[in-house]
């Protein structure tokens, strides 16, 4: 019968349509709330799959590759980075520039300057993988938008240490748990 296939298809869309509203009823009285959601939707769950983004936020996986941060050794209180420059050499897009300080701090070499250019970074993660001191990590930052291009996205040593203290107080990457985006 002509049109039977269309009707069969419409039964699927109708079911989805009903599912959406049934799913909403479970969230009564608010469709979404102004707080982060920590759970992604399961595979077998039905209903609306979308997230009301600025109000609802999904937690980032511990291995999520965001902008780089320099990790601080919680025992020594200084960065683990020894300024060897391997990250600079392994970077495919030449986004990292690092120089080593003359003097040692706490019997450890430290970087003098560290410049990380987020404009050209492609978040491949080679620098983190290659670092012999495990001093680099990916921060779970999600919103990297700025009002000006150029310098705003170039992070220096202090800014990267700040990111590290904020997101990885334990000084390890991958992070221990799923991180709530700031």
């Amino acid at each position: 019968m002509l049109g039977f296939g269309i009707l069969k298809g419409m039964s699927v869309t109708l079911r989805r349509f009903v599912d959406t509203y049934v799913g909403d009823l479970g969230k009564f009285p608010w469709r979404y709330r102004s707080r982060p959601v920590y759970k992604r939707m399961g595979i077998t769950e039905r209903g609306a799959f979308t997230i009301q983004y600025p109000e609802e936020r999904v937690a980032m996986f511990p291995r999520y590759r965001g902008p780089l941060m320099l990790l601080t050794d919680p025992e020594k209180g200084i960065t683990r980075c020894i300024g060897c420059g391997l990250c600079e050499r392994t970077c495919p897009t030449e986004s990292i520039k690092v120089t080593r300080a003359e003097e040692k701090v706490d019997d450890q070499r430290v970087p003098e300057t560290y410049e990380y250019d987020m404009n050209t970074c492609m978040f491949c993660g080679f620098c983190v993988q290659i670092c012999p001191q495990d001093a680099l990590g990916h921060s779970p930052e999600l919103e990297m938008g700025t009002y000006s291009k150029g310098d705003a996205l170039i992070l220096n040593l202090d800014q990267m240490l700040e990111l590290g203290r904020k997101h990885a107080p334990g000084g390890v990457w991958p992070l221990e748990k799923e991180a709530e985006p700031s």
Binding site: L2, G5, I6, K8, S11, V12, T13, G42, I43, T44
Partner: peptide, 25 residues
């Protein structure tokens, strides 16, 4: 595992939605 178990069901649903559709044919 959960995904792989569930995906044939979704493909069935997709086929029910589309394959017999006269306009698509």
């Amino acid at each position: 595992k959960e995904f792989v178990d569930a995906v044939p069901g979704f493909i069935d649903e997709l086929e029910r939605l589309l394959t017999d559709n006269e306009i698509l044919q």
